[in-house]
Write a protein that binds this DNA or RNA. Structure first.
Lengths: 188, 188
DNA sequence: AAACACTATATCATTTTGATATAGTGTTTT
DNA sequence: AAAACACTATATCAAAATGATATAGTGTTT
């Protein structure tokens, strides 16, 4: 999206922890970041290449021990500096892209059953996530002061809990308001 | 993005309400949708072109009355059908892109002042939005049953209130937890 | 041995982003 | 009156992101 490659920082952040291959990066993103960030191979592999020529990361070890050839990368000093610079600069406000609200906004004059169905699906998804997050939260809460890693990981989990809770609450209220609206317009 | 052009539905949705130019569409997006959807000229103008050849919208009136030439478009029957189809289909879960959390996740082992500063900025932005939204909310609440438009518009405002409230709450708790963590590690 | 699932890298078309170019109009400042 | 500025309006561009697909090896199950 013209200007700044954010995937670069995902790769720097992960490689700052331990050396990895492109495939490992994708797995780690899916496991730990997916709740607030996602990226695919189509972005990871080309970015790795350009980061190598920029010397932010470097080829580490071609572990031809087992399975398909795996190219391991590690962060360089230059890469560490760039990561730390990024951590210090202010962050732009979130740019929300919420297709459900776009649909809702354009749903005036149509049957309310589709908005309601869409909101219900949205609510179910939120509750599924809340369920999963509460397990994470319970296991992390007692150990947040053991290390920075635990604390910051917990903060991302807490964020997830807050927003999915907000989504769930909104869904319930929205459905109620739509149903009340149907009643009210039927009475007229 | 491969696959489906969402901007198409933004244009269909807005033109379904009234005929507009590309510039008008951008203005309307900035005014009404920006909280949950944004798009720029670089997407609007090319999409308008392809939608014209697909006959989803059509050139309406070149109002050469005053100011620069303005090209007005209106939705076609085919466009209305496609909009309604889209409103009926289930919506994919939100794909969050929250750079603040990405930074936080990678902030272990660094000075906590930058995470705290970033969270404070985030909280201030949330509270600014809450302020603005409460004004919208107060004026919309009494008239939600007057029309579908009002109801659905109110629901998007309510959504904004719920999430910015969640953001604000999380920010306060996150800062507290980071500060407590600093204390706790200093004591050891 | 065929089918399937998984690891691993890579590429592609399309969409999105954010910036910039161009040009006319209307208002304010010097 | 000229210059500076703000706004309307359309358009294009490079870079980044998305989501799909291609390719190929490995290991397990049918």
């Amino acid at each position: 999206m013209g200007r700044e490659n954010k995937t670069k920082y995902v790769i720097l952040g992960l490689l700052n922890h331990e050396p990895m291959s492109g495939y490992d990066i994708k797995k780690r993103v899916d496991l730990s970041l997916k709740m607030f960030w996602d990226t695919g191979f189509g972005q990871i592999y080309p970015t790795i290449k350009s980061m190598c020529t920029e010397e932010l990361i470097e080829n580490y070890d071609k572990t031809t021990n087992l399975g398909p050839e795996k190219i391991q990368y590690r962060i360089t000093e230059k890469g560490k500096i760039q990561l730390n610079e990024w951590l210090k600069i202010p962050t732009d406000p979130i740019n929300h892209k919420i297709e459900l609200l776009l649909k809702l906004f354009f749903s005036a004059g149509t049957s309310p059953i589709y908005p309601i169905m869409n909101i219900e699906t949205f609510q179910k998804d939120a509750e599924k996530n809340l369920h999963m997050l509460s397990r994470f939260s319970e296991s992390l809460k007692p150990i947040i002061d053991d290390s920075d890693d635990h604390l910051y990981y917990y903060l991302t989990v807490l964020f997830g809990q807050k927003i999915y809770d907000a989504y769930s609450e909104w869904s319930a209220e929205a459905i109620e308001l739509i149903k009340a609206h149907i009643e009210s317009t039927n009475l007229q």
